[in-house]
Simulated scan of single mutants.
Amino acid sequence: MVSINAGPQPDPTARNTEVPTSELAASGEQRSTSKRPGGRSARVQEQVLTATLALLTEREIDTISVADIAARANVAETTVYRRWGSRTGVVSEAVMKMTAANNPPPRTGSLAEDLMTLAKQVAMLIGRPEVRRLLRAVYALSGDPEIDEARTAFYAARFAIARDIVEQAQQRNEIGTDIDSDDVIESLVAPMYFRVLVSGREVTEEFVERCVRDTLLLFAGK
């Protein structure tokens, strides 16, 4: 009889080291879902912006250097320069981020309510030490290219919200379509900025309400 050679036979005592495909897939899925979103870059950015705001609550902007910010954030100075380019760049972004986080655009469906919400947001914002320091620096160092850039970015963000409020009110026929949205926001917030930066008086709740009433009377006739 001719025997058929079937090749080497498996050793019944050998340990099976293969991992089932289903286990490999599950392991890979677990690794991918456990990975933190954003990564180191996002964490470093958050550290730097948080450190910048903390320093602004303690000192005037012209006494803060990139080295100070880097030391407080526990990062290299080159990291700050590579991402923001200058002290003013990181200060501007820190304040912009804080502004956006704490001041969502009002969407009440009423011009009067939207203006009241916006006015209260502005009053709270310019009452913060870090924002006051930035605003004082903006006016004291006017003409400095970096400071002028920070001022432009700050007001551009605030006016963008105001334009949306006015445009929605115009669509609801609450205010004339020929009215400039920038004029509306200037009328609303200019008295508050004057109190903070010039007269040094507090922006009270009664004062905020008066600013809203005056703006509505001027542009909406009510």
Rank of each mutant, 00 (worst) to 15 (best):
S199F: 01
S199E: 05
R201Y: 12
A6V: 06
A169I: 13
M124Y: 05
T215R: 14
A101H: 02
L24G: 07
V196D: 05
S34K: 00
K120P: 02
V48T: 07
L111P: 14
A150K: 08
R40W: 08
T21N: 13
V44F: 08
R201F: 15
N102G: 00
P129Q: 00
G221P: 06
D214F: 08
V203F: 15
P104I: 09
A51H: 04
I161E: 04
I61L: 15
A14E: 10
V166Y: 01
S32D: 14
Y81M: 14
M124C: 13
W84K: 14
A67C: 00
G38S: 09
T79P: 10
A73S: 03
R133I: 13
A14Q: 15
P10N: 07
L188F: 04
R195Q: 09
R210F: 02
Y193S: 04
V138P: 00
R132V: 05
P12D: 10
L49N: 07
C211S: 04
G7P: 14
A51N: 02
T88K: 13
V184C: 14
L217D: 12
N102L: 04
A150N: 10
V203S: 02
V196R: 11
V196I: 08
G127P: 01
L118D: 07
G109H: 03
P8I: 06
C211I: 03
T33L: 12
E58V: 11
G89P: 07
R15L: 09
T204M: 01
R172M: 09
D214H: 10
T117R: 08
A160C: 12
E93W: 02
R72L: 06
F219C: 03
Y193P: 14
P37T: 01
I165M: 10
V189F: 08
E93H: 05
R136D: 05
A112E: 13
L55N: 06
N102V: 04
A70V: 04
K97V: 14
T215A: 13
D178N: 13
D183H: 05
D164A: 09
R40N: 06
P8S: 11
D180M: 01
Q47A: 06
A6N: 06
I64C: 08
A25I: 12
T17Y: 10
S22V: 08
I126S: 02
K97A: 13
A6D: 07
A156I: 04
Y81A: 15
V189N: 00
A94M: 04
E113N: 12
P12E: 09
N5D: 14
D214R: 10
A137W: 07
P191A: 05
E174W: 09
I126E: 05
G109Y: 03
S199R: 00
D164C: 06
L134H: 09
R36Q: 13
P12M: 11
A123E: 04
I126G: 01
G7E: 09
P191I: 08
F219W: 10
P12W: 10
V95A: 13
L55A: 11
G28Y: 06
A54N: 02
C211M: 03
D11E: 12
L49H: 03
L216Y: 01
A14P: 00
E46P: 03
A51S: 10
T57F: 03
D114V: 10
F207V: 02
P105R: 04
E202P: 03
E167W: 02
A6C: 04
Q121I: 02
